[in-house]
Nucleic acid binder design. Structure first.
Lengths: 209, 209
DNA sequence: TAGATTGTTAATCGATTAACAATC
DNA sequence: TAGATTGTTAATCGATTAACAATC
């Protein structure tokens, strides 16, 4: 749980994963320190923006020196909540669910795949990622028994809302939504949308500019 | 090619696919007209925002009446460039590439899958979506012969930049990028990123708020 | 110490909201 | 016509940029 002096805007929050990525890469390349100017040029931001962003969370830099890459990376990791572990399930064991289940990065950052669910009898029983796909009939019992924090929704648009309602009623508080629709959920549930159709249409727009 | 009086900001552009989605749904439900107030409540925006957004492109509404759903939908479809067809290829025939290849919506909106490419001998020759997967060795010749507008990148992070460079040199002007890295491309090439890792980390952040 | 770079305040820019005359 | 709702201008809010004193 965070407790920051200033209220952090969604604009800043959306940049945090990028900071984490760039700092992790710098660390892998044995870069020990970086200035806001250098990081800005790398990330395509301005130095001011970076100093403003980081100062919403506290003073991680040192005047005349810059930022220590390792320390700043760890700080942002914690801000992102990646010092905790999360139990997650994937709903929909088709190609999209399958793709996500194989993302090694998720597990490495503490997002643990506990189960995959599908309605298709041909998919149920197959292995996806590290788990055997279960039937949706077993979902309620499984979520109650396993303290699931995050559900990754990879189901068709037609059933997206129904499934979202089902899992929020079971107490799941976070949804990563790949189904191309906006979900209606209680206010204590957070949804992050990955809308591939929207992204494609933004691209076709930009192609015509 | 657009020619609008006002310069349209990226903020507005990112909302256009949402307008298109909601208006398409309304049309399917035989709703003929809608006011900015009603649409705002549906989409979670304000009526002012909607009127400002739509007026960057021209006056589609009618005082005292509202907007004609079908007409507005068609107008936005055209603004998004979805009145044209686009030839596209998918690079990377793994689960992610496979998932995208099966998106019916893409074809329905005029984005035609012409080929899928992979380096894995076990994947080459299999059928993905509507096409047989080709080896990456055939990419150069294929792109030159088929006027490819859009490449959908579903390759591992490690080879993302290399492939992006290769396809932009072949003249591809649009990239839908699922590889979790920021691509460096010439300024006449447009890239739309779908960064699933970033979305997951935004979610874990929000879970801790 | 001198040089560098942060943290932070002030200025600018852009996006959202409010208000209302125009008009269907 | 009277009521409704747009298109558009003005006011407000928030985010980015600029500037510089603090300080390592």
């Amino acid at each position: 749980m965070h407790r920051f002096s200033k209220k952090v805007s969604m604009t800043v929050v959306k940049r945090l994963p990028k900071y984490y990525q760039y700092l992790s890469d710098l660390q892998l390349n044995d870069i020990e320190k970086i200035s806001s100017r250098e990081l800005a040029s790398l990330m395509g931001l301005t130095a001011s923006q970076i100093r403003q962003d980081l100062n919403s969370f506290g003073g991680y830099g040192q005047q005349g020196y810059g930022y220590n890459v390792g320390e700043l990376k760890e700080a942002i990791k914690e801000i992102l909540g990646l010092d905790s572990e999360y139990n997650c399930i994937i709903i929909g064991g088709g190609n999209m669910g399958h793709a996500i289940a194989n993302y090694e990065r998720f597990k490495r950052e503490g997002v643990i795949l506990k189960g995959v669910f599908d309605v298709d009898p041909l998919t149920v029983g197959t292995v996806v990622g590290s788990v055997v796909v279960k039937h949706m009939d077993e979902l309620d019992e499984f979520v109650k028994a396993n303290e699931i924090d995050i559900a990754i929704l990879c189901v068709p648009r037609e059933v997206g809302q129904k499934v979202a309602t089902q899992i929020t009623e079971l107490g799941v508080k976070g949804i990563l939504n790949f189904s191309p629709l906006d979900l209606d959920v209680p206010s204590d549930v957070v949804v992050e949308n990955v809308n591939i159709t929207d992204s494609l249409f933004t691209l076709t727009y930009l192609l015509g500019e």
